[in-house]
Write a protein that binds this DNA or RNA. Structure first.
Lengths: 339, 339
DNA sequence: TTGTAAGCGTTATCAG
DNA sequence: CTGATAACGCTTACAA
């Protein structure tokens, strides 16, 4: 028969032991920890003393299981390496940590099957809320999310059919606006550099096409170049343009890194920017302001998206009324020397 | 025939219901889920069918509580915005996800008190392991970690007194090596651009001083410039050098972003690099190879650090023998056109 | 304000 | 290979 011992090697201190040392019941310890105001000051102090004396660490696993309330939020990003997501993650953390929530992170690689697996894993952890930086999901994923009855925020675009809540901007509208901006500046042969296998880049390309249509121009396939990720992709774009459509006078890049890569390649070749070729970026990084010339870019409210998303999630978790479920935070064109 | 729905409104399906539908006990369901090989194929199939028919989602909270085994790893980074950490996070994720582990992320801002709070929060979640990208911790934090008996990896430097396991490189040794490299190239008045409040940058500065000493040179305080973070900091460094020590012939930057900022500022001013001023970076980013001229840099095995750390963590979690507890992955000097 | 009893949903253990 | 039973450590609901 197992002997009940008060001191368990390596296994950690239990609430019960804190209670004993403080001379109260487990419930009082629990309350002192979760709702300090509901315990008389003197008792509370005794409890806290016992906690620190024993080095007690509250078990949130047990708490979550018992209370059916988790304090973990799951974040699914297309890529963990992309620095633009860092701003969003940071914003989430800034709001969530002070509220006592932890962040769980995973990568979907923009693959619906992979995203589905990650969502399943997060639901298994009983996350209190979920943030998806994508708007395309497998039917199974959508079914799981609806069935789980968990607050969900979609982030990467304005989805046609939201799962739950949305905080984003429209890739298509933003790309259209930038293309029109370039046209207004006088550029008449605008090229678009895109990334393959990236649904957001695809939307951006649609926006580019929308703009050309509105301008009464045909989309010239020679001016749509699909390149690989990274700075090297920007250089590829320049090479392709020179080869296929050398009379191009402006290049709109689907991503910030691409734009910088393209600019640096122009620098290297001695092409005048914007004289020989204007460059514009879909996304704004600090770097955009520091290269020579500084790059015209779409400024997207990355930090604000994270903040608002986190706030809406918390509101839902705490059953507060939500005035809106879908927020379009828009974008801003920052005109700089590259165009 | 209507699909059998759970009797509990959004609360989720329990293992018990799966067991009933499959005509087995809960234990068999549990085994089928956790150790499929321990259940007869036919039964296993019945269980899986029941699972998908009911949309059952395994409750890892309950599993962890009951088994005292968590499948979450906590990662504490100095900053969530710094892109160099993205590589590490990615590497962790690549190893941990296939092994069935989730990643929990938090920011310490290089503040021991904040780190302590984050560690406490992670321990409360009963993480299976912890990764700290820092080597300076509050005494209380160290006490908690030792008491918790959790595998810990330290990452950002080679610590004097490791808590548990270490996978890193030595900031001091690397900085010394780069400084000596610049000297060997003929630069005799090398400046160092540092970041305030960054313990790793402080170590790097010590390495810089070590090298000068070895070269028989005095450390000239005019050549040690402390600047703010970001590309702007690089520009500040150039301005300070011009003002305080205009005869400086090489600038070693404590960070990648700083180095790029400095180079771009030189470009802007028309300073020849490396003719007027050579530039070297402590850290290598893809960007380093693309700017003009490409920047000489220390290549640190960021991805390898993440991979090895994750592997060692898993080894410890699964009680496998660990040949070593401390790994110095070293560094590499990549000589490019900027020096 | 504090305590008691009964779970929360799973797994360890041991018996069959 | 499968099942019964007792934990895992905490909180809810209610009683005092």
């Amino acid at each position: 028969m197992p002997v009940k011992t008060s001191s368990r090697g390596g296994g950690g201190v239990r609430m019960h032991e804190v209670a004993e040392l403080a001379g109260v019941s487990r419930m009082t310890v629990s309350r002192a920890l979760n709702h300090p105001e509901k315990v008389k000051e003197k008792v509370r102090q005794r409890v806290f003393d016992a906690v620190s004396q024993l080095g007690y660490v509250h078990n949130h696993l047990a708490r979550s299981l018992s209370s059916s309330k988790s304090n973990v939020i799951g974040l699914v990003l297309p890529s963990l390496e992309n620095s633009i997501f860092a701003q969003t993650v940071k914003a989430f953390s800034d709001v969530l940590r002070p509220a006592g929530f932890q962040l769980m992170l995973a990568e979907s690689t923009d693959d619906p099957k992979e995203e589905e697996a990650v969502i399943a894993a997060f639901l298994a952890q009983r996350v209190a809320g979920l943030v998806l930086h994508s708007t395309r999901h497998s039917p199974a994923a959508i079914r799981m999310l609806r069935g789980a009855n968990v607050p969900v925020i979609e982030n990467g675009d304005m989805p046609v059919e939201p799962i739950d809540m949305v905080v984003s901007y429209s890739n298509r509208a933003a790309a259209k606006a930038m293309t029109l901006h370039l046209a207004r500046l006088g550029y008449g042969r605008i090229a678009f550099a895109s990334l393959a296998d990236n649904p957001r880049a695809t939307e951006r390309q649609l926006g580019y096409a929308d703009a050309l249509k509105e301008l009464g121009q045909e989309v010239d396939p020679r001016r749509i170049v699909s390149v690989s990720r990274g700075f090297g992709g920007g250089a590829e774009a320049i090479a392709q343009i020179e080869r296929l459509a050398p009379d191009t006078d402006a290049l709109f890049c689907a991503g910030d890194v691409l734009a910088v890569g393209a600019l640096l390649e122009c620098n290297r070749r001695g092409w005048d920017v914007p004289g020989r070729l204007a460059i514009a970026s879909f996304d704004d990084l600090e770097l955009m302001r520091h290269v020579n010339p500084a790059i015209t870019a779409l400024r997207l409210p990355r930090h604000e998206i994270g903040r608002r998303s986190a706030e809406m999630l918390l509101a839902r978790i705490f059953d507060r009324d939500l005035p809106v479920r879908s927020v379009d935070l828009g974008f801003e064109i920052v005109q700089r020397a590259s165009s």
